[in-house]
Design a protein around this nucleic acid. Sequence first.
DNA 1: CTGAAAGCGCTAACAA
DNA 2: TTGTTAGCGCTTTCAG
Lengths: 339, 339
Amino acid sequence: MTARRKMPTQQDVATHANVSTATVSRVVNDRGIISADVRSRVVLAIQELNYIPDASARALSLQRSGTLGAIIPSLNNAIFAEGINAFERAAQALGYTLILSVSQQDLAREHDLVIKMIERGVDGLLLVGNLHDERVFERLEQTGVRHVCTWAFDENTSSANVGFDNTGSMFDIVDHLTDLGHQHIVMLAGKAHDNDRARDRINGVRHRLESKGLSLPESRVVEVEYSVAQSRKAFNAIIDDKTTAVICGNDVIAYGALLEAQRMGIDVPGQLSITGFDDLSLSAELSPSLTTVQVGADVMGDTAAHQLIRAVENQQGVESTRLTTQLIVRESSGPVRSL
Amino acid sequence: MTARRKMPTQQDVATHANVSTATVSRVVNDRGIISADVRSRVVLAIQELNYIPDASARALSLQRSGTLGAIIPSLNNAIFAEGINAFERAAQALGYTLILSVSQQDLAREHDLVIKMIERGVDGLLLVGNLHDERVFERLEQTGVRHVCTWAFDENTSSANVGFDNTGSMFDIVDHLTDLGHQHIVMLAGKAHDNDRARDRINGVRHRLESKGLSLPESRVVEVEYSVAQSRKAFNAIIDDKTTAVICGNDVIAYGALLEAQRMGIDVPGQLSITGFDDLSLSAELSPSLTTVQVGADVMGDTAAHQLIRAVENQQGVESTRLTTQLIVRESSGPVRSL
DNA sequence: CTGAAAGCGCTAACAA
DNA sequence: TTGTTAGCGCTTTCAG
């Protein structure tokens, strides 16, 4: 088991079945017309030899690999895992294999990974967000590799988008809170470095508040790691008596805020409203359940895979799909308590 | 952008730099000795043409792909996502690319995916658990593809294992609970279909209880989906007044039990002790925090990648690594309240 | 130190 | 319907 056995090749099968390699190729790929006799001989030979075709050779010859690439910031983020799960499922259903790389929220690393993906000959590539190294777009354009940027939607990008408007999604949250009378709001945002989604969400909150004569000064925004423990600390540090609501950049951060508030004896939503973003399945189960924004990561992953594959197989461009988010009002947000 | 551009090949670079393709190959792979002059000409040509090597052709020629495959039951399971994250990170650091497929806890599907992986020419393959279609092992053996089964450890498997003993891990939980005086225990196990880990955990609990003169009849075990909502239902259906402790097959199930207990007004751990398995990061944050078993998914993923790559690059067999789990006692378990 | 040539396994015209 | 023959792009002897 330490030595790598020589695997049977198409040639071996051909010899064994007494046909040409072209014929073997034809039956393997179900292409053209083959007599029943020949077909059965080939099939038998394949079974007897335990023949498994070589995808590299096939890709080299076909100039198509049958793979889809995906580069994501992290897998330790339930919502990305969910999106990739759907992406892989759709790809698998359509006969494609997933090549997955993690950029660790580092755009320089992401650039290198994109090159790797091109080397691998992926037929399509999924990226997260619209913020990337410029050279990424150049390379993709130059090589003609189909790609789609997910988790964001911007009318004015050159690349196709399958995602939602991060800025606009926050309007619903802000409107919901201001309707409930909240004016003193803080935001526990996700880390915005190399991350346009986090940045857009902050801007969304800020702009919407400003449009209502309110504001979100720098002092009332903290960027937090994707971690409940980190979020608790951040919450603890920024919370004060005047604050009546905290908007979180994602559900995990919201869990931290919620748990820490409870530990501090702050009543949610009585004294403080808390909102999340993503609508992880746990969010509906907590007590109080979390008001959040549903993003449909599974639809996004599924759609991205389908768009990519359709573009590849029909030799056309990748279409953008604008997904909508939905505000899910639950128990963690409520009216400002009158004094 | 709808037409696939012809990418520059090694041949183009060779012509441009006025050298042979062999030379280009040498500078690209840093192999052999090349004069400074030639090297710089080649490097320049590569940049000017934006040359990106073709991994398929390389793999075909080298009979090595530089990829590692992984087939996991699901990505919507935080602990697998964590393990794969570590696996990918290690692979990436060592120059390998990850090919990931999801079997959806279906061994028949897994078998097909293994064939796909062999077609892709993965240099090494990660599988979860020791329960697989027999033909999987035959194929792997026959083709000589290095592989490792994770999330389990059994002395008597033919395949290398990088994991822990699921049966034995439950002994710690059982001992902990019986030490606290618990005798009426129920188990909310993970779905055991096509899943030796879940099965082993059930057996672990049962055997350990029996060794102490206690028992875990079928009527006190329910298999539950990996879902907080499902777990709440199952908990609700099985809980009764006599039960003083519930052992859960994983942390997510435990969250469901805990939240439902709280909703029902059951005091944890006053009236009921609850334990989990996995030690997800949230488990330490909940209130009460969850007594659970830490499995070190990141170490497992990292180790698996290293073992695989070492085996490939040194032409040797894959070594097994026995990982240990650790009981983490927190607030959700306590002594049986004396009546 | 560099080039020429063969070959990795498969597919795709083009003939037969 | 089936076989023959070129490659696909890269690496690797083997010469020079």
